[in-house]
Design a protein around this nucleic acid. Structure first.
Lengths: 307, 307
DNA sequence: GCATATAGTTGACTTTGTCAATTATATTGT
DNA sequence: ACAATATAATTGACAAAGTCAACTATATGC
């Protein structure tokens, strides 16, 4: 566990070194201009901000006030900005960009844009989109307002396909199951879609990505089968499984099912503990003869008290 | 089209500003140490490289030779590195990190690691993984050795689920189709999985991400139906559709199918042109009565010459 | 073996950034 | 009302970071 986070840290640091170079590359043309990186950054801020004072720049850009003062003096001398004393506070002065300043800013901006366009054009359209999307995801996750909690929602279009997709990929990797298992999962999902009112699917999402799911289908008025329970490997061991089973069991109570069962494979210790803690008992074991003879299937049942 | 790339450039620049701050945050503790960022970077390079000379550092780190020389002098004085004249080239000297240098490096490294651990620990395990994964993807796509070409492969476990998933999501968004359509797609996929030898699925991937697919199923010895043809919106208009249809048509020739047909929806002009260019003719039109009465379904057929 | 190239160093310099002191205005508590 | 304190912006003095050209020593090509 400790080495897992160390590995991630290593990868992030590697990315940081890599991306520092990329940023350096993109900023190169600014370094070739008569303005420094800091100056360009200041001009950008003055250009974009509605109202801007030296002290607000100090705060936003974490820059030394003295240093800033001199840069602003140069900007004024060059006619890029104008400073007018604030009406409400005689100490501070509002910084406004001039037409010339705007032009200069645009020039700097265009130069670094064309650098970026060059970088993007080496990628096909779709890959560009993926790149930008990945950046947005990183930005979101590292921003303080990121909601990295796991949310659970009901079924939406495409979910059944996604469930089959992840079952296919993960059960092949973990148990060597092939297309026959894939077909079996698809069939079970069709049974649900025949009459969605006779069942439900819950999808757990984190940062817009599906990280786990669970479902229930009615077998008869009092009996329901728990199905399609899967947590993405990276999200296991964090209590998400318990949360999903809880959600299902509550639903069953509401629907007055007094008997719930499920089929699983032998050997999943974490899952066994989870089922046991909800009162499930092992009721049947059989060798799997269609997908993989090594696998032992287990049936677990629980009776719910009417209360 | 032009504004699309401009928008991406804007987003990347925003990410760059954001990430520059993140990197600054992580490097903060190095700035608090008696070594500068550049010095830490140099020490890292000497520590990691098998053999290292001043000139190799100049090239890797793009640093001024004079500046580097002085930094190395200080490192030698502090006992962090040792320089021995190269056997093979009397001009250059091999830089070796000493035990003390390694300790110093580890200290700097640990400090910035702990900063990163703090950042990571605000995220759940799985989200950490997603973050690192996104970074790796960016790094891969922007590196010169990135293969951003689109590759086409055959069916693997999970693909049918993925096909259903994307159909469900995109056909709901684009045509408002609901779970009944989702079920229809699943059913068609099951028919394929019943006997995978009577059909085939091709998956187009870019940078490890599925960006489109197509399939074929045998109807009888001489007739096959083209199915599950979908290109992710961002990857449309780049010739991928043609490439996929081509792949299918070649397969049909090999299998001696002389008649291929498909069902599609009216109004997809790009698709119509594509089908026509492969010799397909519109043979049937009917209102769709199960999913959406607004939609007109079309059947297209083509006879292949035996050659 | 001479011209040229490369590895590394040094001196002189510019740019970039920091820190404390200073002036002018604003705010707060009594 | 006004003294104490806080904030906005500037300035001088300085330190750190980085650049450039000149220089020494060794290597390489013709």
């Amino acid at each position: 566990m400790e080495s897992l986070i160390q590995e991630r840290v290593m990868k992030i640091r590697q990315f940081n070194r890599f991306y520092t170079n990329i940023i350096g590359l993109i900023n190169q043309n600014i370094l070739e201009s008569p303005y420094s990186l800091a100056e360009a950054r200041i001009l950008l801020e003055i250009n974009n901000a509605a109202t801007c004072t030296a002290s607000s720049l100090v705060e936003i850009l974490q820059i030394d006030p003295g240093y800033l003062s001199r840069i602003l003096r140069r900007f004024k001398k060059d006619g890029l900005i104008e400073a007018v004393r604030s009406m409400t506070d005689g100490r501070s002065q509002i910084l406004n960009i001039t037409e010339k300043g705007r032009a200069t800013f645009r020039q700097l901006s265009d130069a670094s844009s064309s650098q970026l366009v060059g970088l993007l054009e080496q990628l096909p359209q779709g890959a560009q989109q993926i790149l930008v999307h990945n950046m947005a995801a990183i930005q979101y996750m590292l921003s303080d307002k990121a909601d990295t909690s796991i949310t659970i929602r009901r079924h939406q279009s495409g979910d059944t396909g996604y469930i089959a997709y992840r079952h296919g990929v993960l059960y092949e990797k973990e148990y060597g199951l092939d297309h026959r298992f894939e077909k079996y999962v698809l069939q079970s999902l069709i049974a649900y879609l025949e009459d969605p009112s006779k069942g439900e699917i819950w999808i757990a999402e984190c940062c817009g990505i599906i990280v786990g799911f669970i479902g229930i289908v009615e077998i008869n008025k009092r009996t329901a089968q728990l199905r399609w329970f899967l947590i993405e490997p990276e999200f296991r061991g964090g209590g998400l499984g318990r949360k999903l089973v809880e959600t299902v069991m509550e639903y069953c109570q509401q629907k007055y099912y007094n008997h719930v069962f499920l089929w699983t494979f032998k050997g999943l210790d974490a899952a066994r503990h989870l089922y046991q803690s909800f009162g499930f008992n092992l009721t049947e074991e059989k060798e799997n003869d269609t997908w993989n003879n090594q696998l032992i299937e287990q049936r677990w049942d629980v009776m719910l008290n009417a209360d």
